[in-house]
């Protein structure tokens, strides 16, 4: 089990390029996050929890789908930790698993109406499923 967590952690760090040890725990990311209140775990917690071996809690949390990918935390992080990239990595590791899509193609297509731009549907396809 421990090995499993270690493998998940290593993968998340590798594909995100994030080094949690660069974090000085200032909380700037969470101070700037527009989706803060919708998240159970906040950007700074993604960094801290992955470092502390708690990546599975993050994978099971809806927080991974609340990130807007606005990159405010990536831009403003004074240490270049770029938490948003880690949120994305954890989300990918969740949906890359068998039958772990948050929404499937039909669910997303059902949202289409005369105003919803293609861009929005396509983004959902990429963010919620594999």
């Amino acid at each position: 089990m421990e090995n499993h967590v270690q493998m998940l952690t290593e993968t998340a760090l590798r594909i995100s390029g994030v080094n949690p040890q660069k974090c000085m725990k200032c909380g700037k990311c969470s101070g700037t996050c527009p989706s803060y209140d919708a998240m159970e775990y906040h950007p700074h917690q993604f960094v801290a929890m992955v470092e502390k071996g708690q990546i599975e809690k993050l994978m099971e949390s809806d927080s991974i789908y609340m990130c807007l990918s606005c990159m405010a935390c990536v831009e403003r992080c004074p240490r270049g930790v770029e938490p948003g990239k880690l949120v994305e990595a954890v989300r990918l590791m969740k949906i890359r698993q068998q039958d772990q899509n948050r929404k499937n193609g039909n669910d997303i297509a059902a949202f289409a109406d005369e105003n919803v731009p293609q861009q929005l549907l396509m983004a959902a396809m990429r963010k919620y499923r594999k």
Partner: peptide, 11 residues
């Protein structure tokens, strides 16, 4: 002024 309050786990 929007910021994080890490001790209270709040924005």
């Amino acid at each position: 002024v929007r910021g994080s309050d890490l001790i209270n786990n709040q924005q």
